[in-house]
Simulated scan of single mutants.
Amino acid sequence: MSSTLRLVPRATSRELRSRSQVPFLTQASRTFSALPRLHTPGPPAPPDAKSAALYNGNTPSYFETTKRLPEFNLVDKVVLVSGAARGLGLVQAEALLEAGATVYALDRLETPSPDFSRIKKRAETELGTSLSYRRIDVRDVDQLNAIVTEIADKHGRMDGLIAAAGIQQETPALEYSAKDSDYMMSINVTGVFMTAQAVARQMVRFGDGGSVVLIASMSGTVANRGLICPAYNASKAAVIQLGRNLASEWGQYGIRVNTISPGYIVTAMVEALFEKFPERREEWPKQNMLGRLSRPEEYRGAAAFLISDASSFMTGSDLRIDGGHAAW
C-alpha cells in the first residue's frame, strides 16, 4: 500500500503543491462570507492563521501550518477553573497550563491538595506560565464577582472557565431532607450558574468572546444503577440544560458554552466509597462498554479541546465521556 502511494507522478505532486499556495475558498464559503454577521465580538485569531479569525465570516486555514495543532494553543489566554483545589478540576487545570494558559483555581478549601504545589511549581519553571489559587465558596456571589473582576482587570481579558465545583450525597429519595436538597442545588446548579455569569460578564466587557465549560455528569442523562443520589442526578441534569440555555443567550457575544458529562471516575473519594461498598468496585466497571472505570487524566483532552479554538464551532453541546455507559 505504501509503495503504491509513493507512485504519484512528480508533475502531479508539483501541481498539488502549487495549488496549496492558493487560499482555499469555495463558492459556498464566498457566499457565506457575504452574509451579515450576527455579532461583532469573538475570540482572537487562532495562532498562525493566515486569514481572518473565526467570527469574521471567514474560516481560518491551518493548511501547511508549521506548528502542530495550533488551534489548541492557549498561550496568553486567562482561564478560571472552579473546584480545582484537587481531583478532576486540578487535573484539567494542569492540562490548560500545558497548553499555555494562565490559570486561576477557585475552591472553598482553605488549603489545596499537595499536588497543587507541584503543579504550580511546574507551571512556573517548566511551562512558562502560572497557576494561582483563590479561596471562594461559589455560593458567595458578591465575593465571587469581586474575584473574577479583579483577575480580569489584572490581565485585561477573560478567555475561559471550567466550572467543576460540585458536591455529592447518597441518600434515598424517601429520606432526603429539603435542607440537604437545597444545599445540593445551591452548589451544583446555582453556584455553577453564578460562576459562569461572573466570567461571561467579563468576556462581554472585553468583547473578545470566550469558552465556558460546565462539568455535568452522565448521571444527568441516566439513573445510576445501585447508586442512590436523586438530588445529585437532578442537579447534573440541570447543569446540562443550563449549558444549552446559556449558549443560546451568549452566542451573540462570541461566547461558547458546553458541558462535559464524565462517567465513573476513580478518585480518592470514590476509593473511600469502595471501602464502604466493596461490591461497587466489581459491579461499576461491568456497567459500561469498556469494562473499567475512568481516571481524572482521561478528561484532560476534553478540557483543552473545549476551551481552545479547536472547538470553535461547538456550543450548546454535551460531551459525554462515560465508556459507553449511557449508550447501552
Rank of each mutant, 00 (worst) to 15 (best):
V91M: 04
A93G: 08
A95D: 09
A95Y: 05
L96S: 10
E98S: 14
E98W: 08
A99N: 09
G100H: 11
G100T: 03
A101H: 11
A101L: 10
A101V: 08
A101S: 09
T102C: 08
T102S: 04
T102F: 10
T102K: 14
V103T: 13
Y104C: 02
Y104K: 06
A105W: 01
A105R: 03
A105K: 05
A105C: 13
L106D: 01
L106N: 01
L106F: 06
L106I: 10
L106G: 03
D107S: 02
R108H: 05
L109I: 06
E110Q: 13
P112H: 05
P112C: 10
S113I: 02
S113D: 15
S113C: 09
P114W: 04
P114S: 06
D115A: 06
D115M: 05
F116T: 02
S117M: 12
S117T: 14
I119W: 08
I119S: 03
K120P: 02
K121V: 07
R122G: 07
R122W: 04
R122K: 15
R122L: 14
R122D: 11
A123K: 07
E124G: 03
E124V: 13
E124A: 15
E124N: 12
T125H: 09
T125M: 07
E126P: 09
L127F: 14
G128H: 13
G128K: 12
T129M: 10
L131W: 01
L131C: 07
L131T: 01
S132E: 15
S132M: 11
R134H: 15
I136V: 14
I136H: 08
V138F: 02
V138K: 01
R139E: 05
R139W: 01
D140P: 06
D140V: 02
V141H: 12
V141M: 05
V141Y: 12
V141A: 08
V141G: 08
D142F: 07
Q143H: 11
Q143F: 03
L144I: 11
N145Q: 15
N145R: 15
A146R: 14
A146V: 08
A146T: 14
I147Y: 09
T149I: 00
E150F: 02
E150I: 04
I151M: 00
I151H: 03
A152F: 13
A152V: 05
A152R: 05
D153N: 12
K154V: 00
K154Y: 00
K154P: 00
K154D: 06
K154G: 00
H155T: 00
H155L: 02
G156I: 00
G156H: 00
G156A: 00
R157E: 03
R157A: 09
R157M: 03
M158C: 04
M158V: 01
M158Y: 06
D159H: 14
G160C: 04
I162S: 05
I162P: 10
I162H: 01
A163K: 00
